[in-house]
Each structure stands twice: as structure tokens, then as C-alpha cells.
Nucleic acid binder design. Structure first.
Length: 577
RNA sequence: GCCCCCGUAGCUCAGUUGGAUAGAGCACCGGUUUCCUAAACCGGGUGUCGCAUGUUCGAGUCAUGCCGGGGGCGCCA
């Protein structure tokens, strides 16, 4: 409807320009719902755009536009000039009611789009190495990535969700050593490091305490889960592993256990990945060597101090980077480039990497390397999200990764459940810091907790249906509804808001910004909840059968939008609460 | 020192890619009602949009510079 109107206006403006002998196209034309309701259903800035080119006052041009536009092929009831030269437009009376019926006919497909044309696209997110449970920061990324994937799927793309992980390297060796240390400590064959030494990075780190060796690594993982894995090994293998190296059985067992826990956490969040991609496979398949060879062909690779470098300054970046250390081991950058090369080979039209703010500096290097390999860097896109803080009672809860005092996703889920968790994590734009208000999240009152506020609005549509059923009132057939009976301002406003759903979710997909959906749903629920509450004025079930059917139709349309919107955020849409 | 992000109501934050009188939630203060689900609904906002220049019909939005907060700048990942 908006497109058709914009089209008519574009044509009318074209005719005005043509009369003045101007055939250039006009940029920046907007036809959008104004902030103020009394400024009409849509407002258009066209006259102001032409003012300079035609050398006439904008309000005068606006008058010409209205005359030229007429009723826009039956779409318009009224148009008037306002402010500096806006043209405010009111749609012909039955347009909103027609919109309601089209929502009902589309049903669960309302808001879907095929702009993606089934093109393959990849969203990579979480990508946490299996060294410990998912933190709240990972949790934000998990929800953000998952919602972006859902939105792109809704926009008609063939989306692959991918989790990239590295189960080799130094981190994992340290992990294995940490487990081994706890294993030996529990068997009384090693001593744990002193508490003071653990807390203070500068404190002395004795090799022996009370006659026992201290084997816990200086930069080891201190979380309780390490001890639990060690205990598990004691239960299964007893003392048979005392001579096992940390990098062997201990490391493997830790990886297996931790990965299982990560997957269970993701499962609890309602997130399923299509591909778990291991960095190690890039070595096994020779992709690392291939990529290095390809990079050498760019002529930007050189050796210095026994290491292999790439001259990124030639690509407009501020410093050079090491690809292969003097030890012969690649840095993380080389496999990352190889990985992106591999993504391109899989034919994705677009790969979206969702990453934490601490990776912001890396993106340009990967892009530059991709471009140097003659691949289109525009196909790689990064979505960075800022960190998460938790607060309660107005105080920020202190967290530290190193000291393992961070709150895990699992712990948070136990407190608030996946639906609340998801909404809170997606309620902010990704570039903003996110303060997770634990008190509000735990709030059970649906009027206060924003997640329940949305879900309850949906449940109420079912409550109304149950009530109708109890009274023997059938749910309406969309083709037989007299939607013209819906003529109260709040009803029209609600329908108008429902009409914004498709463009809202499409914009959210295109800008990789799921928070738009959260805010939109809040708006819908914020119209719907008061509407049905004011029973005297517009009870749904009335004496008037025709009016009742129309309002039940509105109820169903609201349900369609809320259910679909909640699904796009990965939240459940309960029928009763 | 350099790079990236943020700065909007008491608090937490949106702001439809430059539009009209800048909006929500939480909190707070009043009023009405006892309902289809826990009580709900209605009303109540005088904000230097961090500061300053600039761009233009028009700036919270764009550019530049400063101030404040966060992140990053390793042969760690």
C-alpha cells in the first residue's frame, strides 16, 4: 500500500518536473508514517526537495503536487499542505480494514519476504573455544546471531548457522594442564597454588608447597568446572592417569565435557547450529598452506626475524601483521583468512561474522587479506556487539574472566529462563553496552517484565478465543468479516501498527538489528493490552454479532503478528500464562 | 599516542538512514474501576539530545575539533 502510494507520488512529481522542463531524477523522496498521528497516515517531503530546483516556495509546490495527485487512483481520501511544505496524506476509509483482511489471509506467512531469493548466506556466531562455560557476553552474541539468522531466513535467504572453534593451540594446552593439576591435587600428589598468588598476577609462584609440587599453570583456568572434570576422571580412571601429559587425555576429556555443556546451553537457549567448523580441519585439508601460498603471490608477504609477515600497510592499514611465527606456528590471523577463503568457496553470497567488541580491530585485516586474494571484501560483514554488564539493586555485579568469577549463561538461565534471557539480550542495539537488569528480569509481574508483557499480550488473544468458545461464538472467517465495523481511532491505530510489521522485520534483517523487532512488539502489545482492557468501550464479545466478528478478526491479526514476531526473536508464544 | 564504539528524561534505553512539537519502559504522583488472567486502565515530562563550529530549506541523525566512558593496538586466541 505504501509502495503504491509512493509510486503515485513519484509519478506526480515527475509530471510537475517535466512541465518545468526538468527531466533529472529526484533523490531522497520519502513517504512514511509521521510521528504525530494528526499529521495523517503518511507524510511526504517531495515538495521541499523540489523547492530549490524549481525556484518556487515549497508550500506552493506542495499545492501543485496535491492537485496533480488527485486521489492517487482511489487510494487517498484527503491530502493537505503542512509545516514547511510537507504533504500529509489520509488514506481512503476502507484501506486499513482491507489491510486487516490481508493479514488474516497471509496468516503465519505475514511479514515473510522473498528478497533473499533463496541465496545462500552464512551467519557465524558464538564461536567460543571449548575452554569453559559460555559467559553472559557469549550469551548476548548467541542471541544476537540467532535472531539475525532468523530474520534473514524470514527475508528469504538460505541461512547457514555456523560455529567456528579452535580445539588446538596454547589455550587448549593450558586447559589440559589445568585439569591435570586439579587431578593430581585431588589425589594428594600436588599442591594447589596459594590463594594470594592466584589473585595477584605479580605474586610469587612457588614450585613447591608443603613438600608437594605445584603443577597448576600460572595462567591456568581457575573455574570450579576444571575440578569437576578432574573428579570425573578420578571416578572413571582412578590413579591410572598420573603419568599422563596434560596435553593428552586431560585436554581431550576437558574439551569433550566442556563442548557437551556448551551445546546443552545453546540447546536451552533454543539455538541450533548447522555447522561446527573446526580450525584444525583447515590444517588437515591443507587450506592453511594453500592460503599462505596464495598470499605470497600477492607480493605482500615477507620474512623478518624468522617470522612470516604480511605488509598490510600497503593495503591502507596502520601496521604489518605476522602470519607465521618464528616457531613455525601460524598466528590466529592466517587460519582466519584461510577460513574466510573457505567460506567463499562454499558459495555464500554474504558471510556475516558476529563478534565481540574485543575483535573489532581484527576485521579490517581479514577484509584486507580477502581483498588481496582478489575476493570481494563486500561479501564479508562484521557485526560487533559491546559487552554485557549485570546489575542488581542499582549495583553492577563485578565479573572477571581470568579469575573465573563471571556469571555463566547457565546460571542466568536458572534465574530467568530462556524467553526473558532472549528478550533482554536483544533489547539493545549491538553497538551499545548492555546492562542486564537482573531485578527486572526476575520480576514476575507481567506488567513490569517486558518479556512477559509481550507474551501475555499474545496469550490474551487465546484467552479471548477461549471465552468466545465458552459462549458459543465462532471465530470469524476472514472472507466474511465486515471489517468496516472497526472504526474507533484505537482500532485503526492498532491495524496501522500491524501493517508496519513486514517493513519492520525486513529493515531489522537488512541492518542486522533485531532490537527493532523487540521495540516494535512492545508497541503492538502497548496498543493491544490497553485496548482489550477498556471493556466498557470496546469489549470484544458484544451483543452485536457483526461487530463481535470484526473484533475477533482484529484479535486474530494481533495474534498473527505477535506470534510471528516472538518467533523471530526465538521466544515462545504461550497460549496461556 | 593511534584506531573503533557509546554519550538522548532521575535510571535503562529507542529514535524508521536528514524531517514538523525528540519518544518508550522502570521509578514517582494523582484519579477511575473490580474485569477476559496475577489487579488493570486513564492522566501527569521546562531534556543545554556531552560541548563547539560547519554543511542546508531543515541536524539527536552528516563533517571536523574538543570533553567524558568502554574496548582495542602481541611472533595471545
Amino acid at each position: 500500500m505504501r509502495e503504491r502510494l509512493a509510486d503515485e507520488i513519484g509519478k506526480a512529481l515527475g509530471r510537475i518536473l517535466e512541465t518545468a522542463g526538468d527531466r533529472e531524477p529526484l533523490p531522497g523522496l520519502t513517504v512514511e508514517p509521521p510521528r504525530q498521528k494528526d499529521h495523517g497516515d503518511f507524510a511526504c517531503n517531495g515538495a521541499m526537495l523540489l523547492a530549490k530546483r524549481l525556484g518556487r516556495p515549497p508550500r506552493e509546490i506542495a499545492e501543485s503536487l496535491i492537485a496533480e495527485l488527485g486521489d492517487a487512483g482511489g487510494l487517498l481520501a484527503r491530502a493537505e499542505v503542512a509545516g514547511p511544505g510537507f504533504v500529509n496524506l489520509w488514506l481512503a476509509g476502507d484501506r486499513w480494514q482491507a489491510l486487516l483482511l490481508s493479514i488474516l489471509r497471509a496468516g503465519p506467512d505475514y511479514g515473510r519476504s522473498d528478497v533473499g531469493k533463496d541465496q545462500p548466506l552464512q551467519v557465524e556466531f558464538v564461536s567460543a573455544n571449548p575452554t569453559g562455560p559460555l559467559s553472559t557476553g557469549h550469551g548476548r552474541q548467541a542471541i544476537l546471531g540467532d535472531c539475525i539468522a532468523r530474520l534473514l531466513g524470514n527475508a528469504g535467504y538460505d541461512v547457514t548457522r555456523e560455529y567456528y572453534f579452535n580445539n588446538g593451540g596454547r589455550q587448549m594446552r593450558v586447559l589440559g594442564e589445568s585439569v591435570r593439576a586439579r587431578y593430581l591435587e585431588r589425589l594428594g600428589r600436588a599442591a594447589p597454588p596459594a590463594e594470594a598468588a592466584l589473585k595477584d598476577e605479580d605474586a610469587a609462584w612457588p614450585a613447591e608447597l608443603g613438600g608437594l609440587p605445584v603443577v597448576f599453570p600460572r595462567d591456568g583456568y581457575q573455574g570450579d568446572y576444571i575440578g569437576e572434570i578432574a573428579q570425573q576422571l578420578i571416578d572413571e580412571c582412578g590413579e591410572s592417569l598420573v603419568d599422563e601429559p596434560g596435553d593428552g587425555r586431560f585436554r581431550a576429556e576437558a574439551e569433550r565435557t566442556i563442548f557437551a555443556e556448551i551445546r546443552a546451553t545453546l540447546d536451552a537457549l533454543g539455538i541450533a547450529f548447522d555447522v561446527f567448523f573446526s580450525e584444525a580441519s583447515l590444517y588437515e585439508d591443507g587450506k592453511i598452506e594453500e592460503t599462505l601460498a596464495a598470499l605470497r603471490e600477492t607480493g605482500l608477504v615477507y620474512e623478518e626475524g624468522g617470522a612470516v609477515w604480511m605488509r598490510f600497510s600497503e593495503l591502507g592499514l596502520d601496521r604489518e601483521r605476522v602470519l607465521v611465527k618464528s616457531s613455525g606456528e601460524p598466528t590466529y590471523l592466517l587460519p582466519d583468512v584461510a577460513y574466510h577463503r573457505e567460506k567463499f568457496e562454499r558459495g555464500f553470497v554474504r558471510v556475516i561474522d558476529v563478534q565481540g567488541a574485543d575483535h573489532k580491530d581484527q576485521g579490517p585485516f581479514v577484509k584486507a587479506a580477502v581483498q588481496a586474494l582478489s575476493l570481494d571484501p563486500e561479501r564479508v560483514e562484521f557485526v560487533f556487539h559491546e559487552f554485557v554488564t549485570l546489575s542488581s539493586g542499582g549495583e553492577t555485579i563485578k565479573q572477571s574472566t581470568r579469575k573465573a568469577t563471571f556469571i555463566t549463561v547457565d546460571e542466568l538461565l536458572e534465574e530467568v529462563g530462556p524467553d526473558v534471557f532472549r528478550l533482554f539480550m536483544v533489547q539493545r542495539r549491538s553497538e551499545s553496552h548492555l546492562d542486564f537488569d537482573l531485578d527486572l528480569a526476575k520480576e514476575q509481574d507481567w506488567t513490569k517484565n517486558p518479556a512477559y508483557y509481550l507474551q501475555y499480550a499474545h496469550a490474551r488473544t487465546h484467552g479471548i478465543e477461549r471465552q468466545a468458545e465458552a459462549r458459543g461464538v465462532p471465530m470469524p472467517d476472514p472472507d466474511a468479516v465486515e471489517s468496516g465495523r472497526l472504526d474507533l481511532p484505537e482500532e485503526l491505530e492498532l491495524i496501522r501498527k500491524l501493517g508496519e510489521f513486514p517493513e519492520t522485520v525486513l529493515r531489522a534483517a537488512e541492518t542486522r538489528a533485531p532490537h527493532h523487532v523487540a521495540y516494535y512488539l512492545r508497541d503492538v502489545a502497548g496498543l493491544w493490552n490497553p485496548y482489550i482492557q477498556d471493556k466498557d468501550r470496546h469489549g470484544i464479545l458484544t451483543e452485536d454479532a457483526e461487530l463481535t466478528a470484526a473484533r475477533l478478526a482484529l484479535t486474530l491479526a494481533v495474534r498473527i503478528v505477535l506470534a510471528r514476531g516472538l518467533a523471530l526473536l526465538g521466544m515462545s508464544a504461550p497460549e496461556r500464562m
